[in-house]
Write a protein that binds this DNA or RNA. Structure first.
Length: 477
RNA sequence: GGCGCCAUCGUCUAGCGGCCUAGGACGUCGCCCUCUCAAGGCGAAGACCGCGGGUUCGAAUCCCGCUGGCGCUACCA
């Protein structure tokens, strides 16, 4: 039995990744299987260099350790897709030779226009197979001429693909509904669909446990397995974590970064416990067992049943997570609690980063926390008079705060880009840079006087800073 | 729009044809404890099991339709 998680290094490690990782790990440990970590870094445009290490750190923090992966190696490496491009190229050639895939020379412009026309005609947007009939020689000629191309899957013109989802039973997709998916991009990198199938096969993955959002692309994957003549893995599609409004969980509506949860002082055991609670899976709590909802990873391995999972997507309830974390905190011994505080809010590297910001601004050490309290507190809410600039109203300030949040989502979290982003925002509006900075300072620190704003933001980190902004927007709604 | 998945208290869930006048947990409210706040104890409100048809002696549980929610519909994963 072999399972895997395949995160993409495109940003902060995601709580959904942790959820799927937990499910995979429990599955593997229950069946003496191996748990593989594979980095799916085939999208160059969204690649974030620091992200991979952050994913490693976050998963290790949660204790969700893998048996094989880019950092620990293993018999099926390399475990980073960008290091396997040669393999994908070979496999694509096989598909091409067998007529199961074809080269497509359509320009992005043509594709876009085609989609527009289809939308206008109220037709489902799908590739019109313009290049599918291209003769071998003609295609060769265009390749020789240096025309950029992608490789698409040749989906059968008729029929249907049925596959078994272990939690839902058979699922059927008519081939008319399946697009001729791009397998290899014009930059020579594979898309998820190709790389994922090739790697799952090469790495001998027996059970694909992933999020529900993949159900509709599974027929493409099945078609690929068949084209290669490979045996199918079992598919387990887990319910999708949701926001309060039931949409797919997103950073706009929830703290979604594992960095945030760590930084905000959640204990990894509580986090894992809470994730294990979502979607069911654990046996029904008996009337006597009052604290049946509290369990450790080992207990999950012992009792979790995948067949029990309820398929309705669970709302990620921060309130309940907080309560559970409180339960865990209270159960620590005094010594453990002390260690937790020292390793969390008072962690050396965090304190060390904060100290220079305070040193020249205080006269006694006693003032240290008066000045820097916002680094350690979550519930910062400035009184209106501090965040509404003179001559403006609360609605306008709120709107600006929302724009700031949006602006800060993207870009590196270092002083220069933060500064540039905020100043650019001011320039685009009738706000002065000073007003923008003051508003953000009030929101983040809760006061009008603080250590330097930008430096403080950098120390506090993106996830926590943005969480604070979103909380502000929430509370002033 | 097309296709697919899903559907029990506000939220997470138990329930897998009779044990259900639907159980537990979070949250909410009240009482107790108490110098405050928590924690803890006790209790309450909260779900006509989305709606409508079947099947059955009997349905939250099985079937069909509807509605609703969500996902996918990219040279992103």
């Amino acid at each position: 039995m072999r399972v895997r998680i395949a995160p993409s290094p495109t940003g902060d490690p995601h709580v959904g990744t942790a959820y799927i990782a937990l499910m995979n790990l429990v599955f593997a440990r229950q069946r003496q299987g191996r748990f593989v970590l594979r980095i799916e870094d085939t999208d160059r445009s969204r690649f974030v260099a620091a992200s991979e290490q952050m994913i490693f750190d976050a998963l290790h923090w949660l204790g969700l350790d893998w048996d094989e992966g880019p950092d620990v190696g293993g018999p099926y490496g390399p475990y980073r897709q960008s290091e396997r491009t040669e393999l994908y190229r070979r496999k694509v050639d096989e598909l091409l030779a067998a007529g199961r895939a074809y080269r497509c020379f359509c320009t992005p412009e043509r594709l876009e226009e085609m989609r527009r026309a289809q939308m206008a005609a109220k037709l489902p947007p799908r590739y019109d197979r313009h290049c599918r009939g291209l003769r071998g020689e003609e295609a060769q000629a265009r390749v020789a001429a240096g025309t950029p191309f992608v490789v698409r899957l040749a989906v059968p013109e008729s029929g249907a693909t049925t596959f078994r989802d272990e939690l839902r039973g058979d699922i059927t997709f008519d081939h008319h509904q399946v697009d001729d998916q791009v397998l290899m991009k014009s930059d020579g990198y594979p898309t998820y669909h190709l790389a994922n199938v090739v790697d799952d096969h090469e790495m001998q993955i027996t059970d694909v446990i992933r999020a529900e959002e993949w159900i509709s692309s599974t027929p493409k994957h099945v078609l690929l397995y068949q084209a290669f003549g490979w045996a199918l893995p079992r598919f387990w599609h887990m319910p999708l974590l949701r926001n309060q409004d039931r949409s797919k969980i997103s950073k706009r509506k929830n703290p979604v970064s594992l960095v945030y949860y760590r930084q905000a002082g959640f204990l990894p055991e509580a986090m894992v416990n809470y994730l294990g609670l979502l979607g069911g899976g654990m046996p029904a709590p008996s009337a006597e067992a009052k604290d049946a909802e509290r369990f450790a990873f080992a207990e999950m391995v012992e009792k979790f049943q995948f067949e029990r999972i309820s398929l309705g997507g669970p709302v990620f309830d921060l309130e309940k997570l907080r309560w559970l974390n409180g339960v865990y905190l209270r159960r620590l011994t005094p010594e453990e609690f002390f260690a937790a505080v020292r390793g969390g809010p008072l962690a050396d590297d965090y304190l060390r980063a904060i100290c220079p910001l305070a040193q020249e601004r205080i006269e006694t050490l006693g003032q240290f926390f008066d000045l820097t309290d916002f680094f350690f507190r979550d519930e910062v809410l400035p009184p209106a008079e501090t965040w509404v600039p003179k001559k403006r109203d609360a609605a306008a300030a709120r709107k600006m705060a929302a724009q700031i949040a949006e602006r800060l989502e993207a870009g590196d979290w270092t002083q220069e880009p933060l500064d540039a982003g905020l100043r650019a925002l001011a320039a685009e509006t009738d706000w002065s840079a000073k007003e923008v900075f003051m508003l953000l300072r009030a929101v983040v620190t809760g006061k009008t006087a603080s250590p330097p704003l930008l430096e403080s933001l950098v120390v506090m980190g993106r996830a926590r800073s943005l969480a604070r902004l979103r909380r502000f927007l929430d509370l002033t709604k």
